[in-house]
Design a protein around this nucleic acid. Structure first.
Ligand SMILES: [Zn+2]
Length: 285
DNA sequence: TTCAGTGTTTGCCA
DNA sequence: CTGGCAAACACTGA
């Protein structure tokens, strides 16, 4: 479910509720998803204080400390259906939300529920991110993510455009929705070879990625169902989920392809696969 | 009732 | 290296 804008929205909401709170208890019967294991995680985090809550790619990063010394990091990945729910430490068991996979009891009587219907989510404790770095690419909204940086990424690999943009090791945070939306806004076909783009096309893609992600954040992400209810971006999507509907730019019919097992939404006119003879006026927003 | 499809990632194979 | 495919799992809608 959640991509960069949704995770960013979740982090912004969670941060003020978590910051400076002490972890009093941790429970999870979620064996496959908790690393290194419930007992180990509990021993590592109970008694620690939450010093920071931030996002890196699609990861939620919770920095812990004891006293003023770092006490490691909790990494949470929501995958397809993970979400946060909030309650109180005296909640009755029958009032808990559905699909609870882990609970954190915090000072002030606050309880954080990690819920995840499909159980793809991951919760990992690492003592030090420096020795256990996240193997993911640059943040697309960072200042350092320049068109030249994107050009380096696109040209250093020989992959199709969409699979490359989805590759978290190349760029962190794009998922199926925002990749399709970015490619449409850049006027680029998802099956183009990443190394075939011209400089102007790379510039258009760079701008499209950043504008699309920022727009997603501004509208609190995309909500398609119960898995992520708080977004408003779904009404502004130009191609994702709009198969057989008219393109909002040119009126042609949006088609749905299958690329790397993912549904892929394309306007055949705005995103020509082959180079067009007629010059296209930059279709980017 | 059955089954394809879902916003993610990893691992295996050719 | 690259792409394709299966799988991890629960739920929804046709
Ligand atoms: Zn179009």
């Amino acid at each position: 479910m959640p991509e960069l804008p949704e995770v960013e929205t979740i982090v912004r909401a969670a941060r003020p509720r978590l910051l400076r709170r002490r972890i009093g208890a941790f429970h999870s019967r979620w064996v496959r998803q908790v690393s290194p294991g419930e007992r180990e995680v509990r021993a590592a985090i109970v008694g620690a204080t939450i010093a920071d809550v931030r996002r890196r790619g699609k990861f939620i990063v919770i920095e812990l400390e004891r006293g003023s010394r770092s006490a490691g990091v909790l990494l949470i990945h929501l995958r397809m259906s993970g979400r946060f729910e909030w309650g109180r430490t005296d909640d009755r068991p029958d009032s808990e939300p559905r699909h609870v996979r882990a609970t954190f009891d915090l000072s002030g009587g606050v309880r954080l529920y990690f819920c995840d219907a499909r159980k793809f989510g991951r919760l990992r404790y690492v003592a030090d991110l420096k020795t256990t770095p996240l193997a993911i690419g640059p943040e697309p909204l960072d200042r350092s993510f320049t068109p030249a940086r994107l050009a380096g990424i696109l040209r250093s690999r020989r992959k199709l455009l969409k699979p490359l943009l989805l590759d978290q090791a190349a760029i962190a945070g794009l998922g199926n929705i925002y990749t399709d939306e970015s490619l449409f806004r850049a006027g680029l076909h998802p099956l183009r070879k990443s190394s075939s783009l011209t400089d102007p096309q790379i510039a258009a893609l760079h701008q499209a990625i950043r504008r699309t992600l920022r727009e997603g954040i501004r509208h609190s992400g995309t909500s398609l169902d119960w898995a992520y209810p708080e977004g408003k971006m779904q009404t502004r999507l130009l191609v994702y989920g709009r198969g057989d509907q008219p393109c909002r730019r040119c009126g042609d019919t949006i088609v749905v392809l299958r690329v790397g097992q993912r549904s892929t939404h394309v306007c055949p006119t705005c995103q020509p696969k082959a180079r067009r003879r007629a010059a296209m006026t930059n279709p980017g927003t």
